[in-house]
């Protein structure tokens, strides 16, 4: 048995956000982090490794600097890493990305008792689409929004979050689970792990590596193969300044309430 975990390096949108003059995000100027939900997926896989001794392979599609993130995940305890990186893959939307990642996962090899993990969604796009789309391309069952996992041989029982509760779902391996960050608290890299992480295998899959897979067709990958395109992108305008009240005492509050009252807001 092994666990294959899809991870994404994302700009830290909670920190300083750099926007270029043309209105697009200046990724190069922003700090990068491992996507939160993906870290929960890595931790979930490592906990299964702790219990069963299974192998954990992390796979990420992105530019070459994503190797740094993969080394960190190896230092956390993952066994092998695959970086999927090629110019031909650039500009892919979720459909195209899932084709490429599915091809990469097939190349890694999916056995009967394997589980593929993804984060629920990435904080840069918030789409939550790539996980289910990989599952479809691999022809395996999926469960998304997973907040609890129990593995018993080939049977996997999970708790799947709904807005107002949850579903308990049983699924057989091989399957794909997308994890929410509430699933666990990810461990830190260990000192030993940091020492070892450069000795662990990290393979790069480029276009050549994957091109024989039927999923890798120039008409369905990259910017040109993506079904969706950006029509326009724009920055929301700053809302017209409201009224800043002077002071913060009783008189201020009473003045505010009288304005609200006069305008029939309260």
């Amino acid at each position: 048995m092994k666990a294959i975990v899809c991870v994404k390096q994302v700009p830290d949108t909670s920190g300083v956000v750099a926007v270029k003059e043309d209105g697009t995000m200046d990724r190069a100027a922003m700090a990068t982090i491992t996507n939160h939900d993906d870290l929960a997926a890595v931790e979930a896989a490592l906990r299964i490794k702790d219990a069963t001794g299974c192998k954990v392979v992390v796979v990420s599609m992105g530019p070459p600097p994503a190797e740094g993130m993969l080394r960190e995940l190896l230092a956390m305890g993952c066994d092998e890493a695959v970086l999927v990186s090629a110019r031909e893959f650039g500009g892919s939307d979720t459909y195209a990305t899932s084709q490429i990642l599915a091809a990469a996962i097939k190349k890694i090899g999916v056995d009967d008792d394997d589980i593929v993990f993804c984060g629920r969604q990435a904080i840069d796009g918030d789409t939550a689409q790539v996980g289910p789309q990989i599952a479809e391309k691999l022809g395996m069952p999926q469960v998304s929004y997973v907040a609890e996992i129990n593995v018993d041989g080939k049977a996997v029982t999970v708790k799947r979050l709904l807005e107002d509760g949850y579903m308990t779902i049983k699924v057989q391996t091989p399957c794909l689970l997308t994890c929410v960050k509430e699933l666990n608290d990810a461990r830190y890299m260990s000192v030993g792990g940091i020492m070892e992480c450069y000795q662990k295998p990290l393979e790069v899959y480029n276009y050549e590596t994957l091109k024989d897979d039927p999923l890798i067709d120039v008409t369905t990958i990259g910017l040109k193969g993506s079904p969706t395109n950006v029509y326009k992108s724009f920055s929301p305008p700053v809302k017209g300044a409201g009224m800043m009240m002077e002071g913060a005492d009783k008189a201020t509050v009473e003045k505010l309430v009288s304005i609200l009252n006069d305008k029939h807001i309260i």
Partner: peptide, 9 residues
């Protein structure tokens, strides 16, 4: 997109 920093059509 990007947590609301940008809008994309």
């Amino acid at each position: 997109a990007f947590g609301g920093h940008l809008m994309a059509t």
